[in-house]
Amino acid sequence: MGISLMYYLLVSGGLFALGLLGVLIRRNPLLLLLSVELMLNGANVALIGFSRHWNSTDGQVFALVVMVVAAAEVVIGLGLIVAVFRQRIALDVDGMDHLKG
């Protein structure tokens, strides 16, 4: 009576899909970053599931590296948001199109 790989992949797919939906819908860049974190967590769940399936540590190492990269990305993302905010621009990703050709 155990868990199989399929369940892990289902949860991972669900988290990734919800994160994808959040990235597509959200206008507030903070909420967008939260959705990106959801996608990264979905990927981590899949990695850990596979690592358990093949009985290998490599998947977990990969998941830890993903966590580190997520932390670094959040730091820079939030720094950018704060910098944009300080320039008195409204926090709306659809409105930040000044570089549009």
């Binding site: 009576m1 155990g2 868990i3 199989s4 790989l5 399929m6 690592s51 358990r52 399936h53 009985n55 290998s56 540590t57 977990q60």
Partner: peptide
Amino acid sequence: PGMRAAFAEAGDIG
């Protein structure tokens, strides 16, 4: 293979 089977006994991976 192995998609629906319960996980085998885990070694010392974590």
